[in-house]
């Protein structure tokens, strides 16, 4: 069972070229929850004087993680797309450290999923960023 979950997680990232390009690793998935780790990389730097990664890379991590949380909802949506996503940047991510995002799909209707996420570096006490978003729910064969 765990193996199947791990295979699913790997396939989820491998199916997304941009997630692969960022070296993302889906470390947890299920019941509307997802966790993704993104390693630090020189090409993600937004401020060359400090080595802090660009907010845009954090947005991508959040968006991917929120989408994964929607897809893992027990109702098993066929597909999802972001309707809107808000990111709040609490502080600069520490250069050289991976970012870990956790997203939770806390409510869903027939057609919309509501998701929130938080991202940390090695300091688990102080979030780097938080996100809230609304996502479409696409089901095969119309309304469920």
């Amino acid at each position: 069972m765990e193996d199947r979950k791990a295979t699913l997680a790997r396939q989820f990232i491998e199916a997304i070229p941009h997630a692969r390009a960022l070296g993302m690793d889906l470390t947890e998935l299920g019941e509307g929850l997802a966790e993704i780790v993104m390693p630090y990389a020189d090409h993600l730097v937004g401020d060359p004087s400090t080595g802090v990664i660009h907010g845009g890379a954090v947005s991508t991590l959040m968006d991917t993680c929120c989408g994964a949380a929607v897809m893992s909802h027990p109702s098993i949506p066929a597909a999802t797309a972001t309707i809107d996503l808000r990111i709040d940047y609490m502080r600069a991510a520490t250069p050289g450290q991976s970012l870990r995002a956790r997203a939770e799909c806390y409510h869903r209707t027939r057609s919309v999923a509501f998701v929130r996420a938080v991202a940390h570096d090695d300091d688990a006490e102080r979030p780097v960023a938080t996100a809230t978003g609304a996502f479409t729910i696409e089901t095969n064969g119309g309304a469920t």
Partner: peptide, 15 residues
């Protein structure tokens, strides 16, 4: 981000 459509990743758009 979505190879089936295909579509640009929402995170890329945000960035």
């Amino acid at each position: 981000g979505n190879p089936l459509l295909p579509a640009i990743h929402g995170g890329v758009t945000a960035a």
